[in-house]
Amino acid sequence: MRWTLLLGILALVALTAGHGIGLFASPPDAAMGQTVRILYLHVPSAWTAMLAFTVAAVAAVGVLWSGRPGWDALLEGSVEVGVVFCGMLLVQGSIWARPTWSVWWTWDPRLTTTAVMMMAFLGILLLRRLVDEPGRRATASAVATIVSYVDVPVVYFSVEWWSAAHQGFSSARTVDEGMRLPLWVSLLGTVLLGATLVLWRTRIAAEARRREEDAPDLPPAPPPLDLEIAP
């Protein structure tokens, strides 16, 4: 608990610093002007969403391999956080697309893949709500998580072929010198924030499952039926 809190504080510090530099101390982009500043929010969100789903896939393998409830809680936590970050990504993408391409939505491969990925994992959260038996729920969502995770690169690949227009990847190495520092710091902050949320959510999920399966001890064996004193 204390570690999670510490992680959260670290995240807040890094986010404040990263976005502080990003908003006030970094240069505007030659081509995109001020709108480039959404980069410090957008790229880290994308990384965090992808990392969260990767953790979910690892947890899913853990569920199928060992069947321990802890993996299932981690799966619930990371899928949920991943879906939230996917939602943020879509909103940011729209906000950026509006001034840049003067549309709210474009069929850019990354944006489209994010939307598809979000729907797939949202479906898994729905599945979890609809299956009552904890063991069956864990197995079903683990299977669906693996199947959906494997699909992500395939979706990206096919959508890229399908839509011709696309932008090159933004990573800390392809951007201008002055943008690197805020990008790295806000990336660190966002990933730490994601980790904090996943850990908190996992703890809640684990507690919920414990309550669900909280069985009173098996009652003691009753005395054997005495046939002699029967009327």
Partner: peptide, 26 residues
Amino acid sequence: LTARVASQQVLLPVLLFPLVVPPVLA
């Protein structure tokens, strides 16, 4: 996976459609 879930009619397409985006596109 959804055979024993009461609302299979809804859940199956919700799970399946995002997954089959690549084969449908292709």
